[in-house]
Design a protein around this nucleic acid. Structure first.
Lengths: 341, 341
DNA sequence: CTGAAAGCGCTTACAG
DNA sequence: CTGAAAGCGCTTACAG
């Protein structure tokens, strides 16, 4: 497995210093003369030295492991987050450990305990819905495990997080539709208990009213983020409000369902009706026409979250770290000027 | 992080034996008296002992790490494989490391080298398309890294693999459609260079001929496994062969595309036309009507693959391990008796 | 069948 | 600013 097992001692010998000094340089500790530091770095580079993670873990207090605890979420989303964390870890000699925590009740404690025992992570990234699982947060806090949440539903004073402004994003999409001349727009909302879904709904109606459109002309239907619920919601909506010229769904899957219903009713997209989603899922990209949607920089958000963990920034600050990321309005083929124009 | 850092020495003291004996028991080594073994096991259990992975790795020759090298494949598939490997690892104190290898050319060597240096895995699970990436296989073989491939396109004499009989699965689906009275069935095949796609096509036409149906009545169109290609293929097919009553696509995404085209043409599914897919993707389940498809036991296949790695079965045998898994025909709402019946 | 000694490759105190 | 010693918790030879 190891071709040339170069150790820290080899580097020390090569650089003409003690092992301890090499260790200092590698860990960016202070109190090393610059010339010494350079000599060590040069020696390490020449030898192609790579620190042994197991040895560092055993001797020290870090494991160089970052966990991603996730529940039952969109699988593409989970994988995207994994990729972002992985990128950050890879660059810093850390390793990503994805850990599904599907039992939200009793089982999660035993499972988490076993996970932490075989893999004592230096920190965890949390994604919804685990970002808002109070017993889990308490469990981690009790063990002093650093946490960064991605897009938590509720803001918690003590937990670092990265997020986008969901409401502003919904407003941007609504404005996009309005600027295309749409005046009667249906909205398909997500699950009631989903915080982001709430904010999206809020943003939609806020912009509708702000633009002087009539609220009654813009029906709302409730979905559950799944494709089928979007199809059903759109179908009912087109039945009761046949004059709507656009539908905005709170996620891509429901938008895809809405598209299906439009097709079934003989409507063309976007000629007869514009359809917009939210989340920039691969599904929305694969659709035909491709879905206009909102894109979160999931990768960059996940990278930022894990970098806080890796750099120890989290441990250093008193006030909880928090960073807002910009969303992106992806205008694709599923939205076009209103047929009423 | 550690609440009660119970060590092997603690267990030894409690059981009244030497640390070496505890080590023997934990590693299932021979030459331990049964009473001794039981005493050690009891002591370990009472103390809630968990071996320290870092220490075992540093002292021994195992890392307790299993890698999943994957390329650009269906993301749901990747995640399902991860889950299967994770389950097996979790039960045996191993850890899963997913490693995306997206650069199939020069870059993969450097990347893989860095990966193996920070994470010297005890073995890797390969999924398509990496299962058939010769330079990668050579690289791994040169370093004596145990490999298990899941559904490789080509069977390689020296590499262990798990798979399903793709051709038989296609035959089963074809027979399902024929038994519903369909006599004119279109087939949408996958990418030319995809081995499994070939086998599915082969199975389809073999069963068509075997059942006495006319080959000319069963058009074939080429897709690329993406939704849009299925939509285009189906659209052309319905143009040139308006009398077909069923479409069988070589994967779910293309079947979803075909469904879209059917809707756009005012056809009902399954009343006017039956549509079948392959792979049991979440997309196919979400569709409305839900897609009849072929399900591979991806989870079990991934578990089996990683267990070979974990148990060391791979190192012990001379002849390459190989196991065929049974597929499942999932009859859902998208297929029904032919309208010609 | 069992154990005492040495060592894996680092970091932690501690000393200077 | 730098280093010598001890130790992290296991497994590897080796001995008996």
């Amino acid at each position: 497995m190891h071709r040339t097992p170069i150790t820290l001692d080899d580097v020390a010998a090569r650089a003409g210093v003690s092992p301890k000094t090499v260790s200092r340089v590698l860990n960016n500790e202070p109190n090393v003369r610059n010339t010494t530091r350079d000599a060590v770095l040069a020696a390490a580079l020449e030898l192609g030295y790579r620190p042994n993670r197991a040895a560092r873990t055993l001797a020290g207090s870090r494991s160089f492991l970052i966990g991603h605890l996730h529940g039952r979420a969109d699988r593409d989303y989970i994988l995207s987050v994994n990729e972002g964390i992985h990128t950050a870890c890879f660059q810093h000699g850390y390793v990503l450990l994805p850990e599904p925590l599907l039992d939200y009740n009793e089982g999660f404690v035993r499972r988490l305990q076993q996970f932490l025992q075989t893999a004592p992570v230096d920190g965890v990234v949390l994604t919804p819905p685990l970002t808002d699982h109070d017993p889990l947060l308490a469990f981690l806090a009790a063990r002093n495990i650093p946490i960064v949440s991605i897009s938590p539903e509720k803001v918690r004073k003590s937990i670092a997080s990265v997020y986008i402004d969901e409401k502003e994003a919904a407003i941007a999409m609504t404005q996009h539709l309005i600027s295309l001349g749409h005046k009667k727009i249906g909205f398909i909302s997500g699950p009631k208990d989903h915080g982001a879904s709430h904010l999206r709904t809020e943003g939609f109606y806020e912009q509708i009213l702000k633009s002087g459109l009539k609220r009654e002309a813009c029906p709302q239907a409730q979905g559950d983020f799944k494709l089928k619920s979007g199809a059903i919601a759109a179908n009912e909506m087109l039945e009761t409000h046949p004059d709507i010229t656009a539908i905005f769904a709170a996620n891509d899957a429901m938008a895809a369902g809405a598209m299906t219903s439009a097709f079934k009713r003989g409507l063309s997209v976007p000629e007869d009706i514009s359809i917009a989603g939210f989340d920039a899922s691969p599904l929305g990209e694969a659709l035909w026409p491709a879905l206009t949607t909102i894109k979160q920089p999931v990768n960059r958000m996940a990278m930022a979250a894990s970098l806080w963990l890796i750099s120890g920034a989290l441990a250093r600050t008193e006030q909880p770290l928090r960073e807002r990321f910009d969303f992106e309005l992806l205008v694709r083929a599923s939205t076009a000027p209103s047929r009423e124009n």
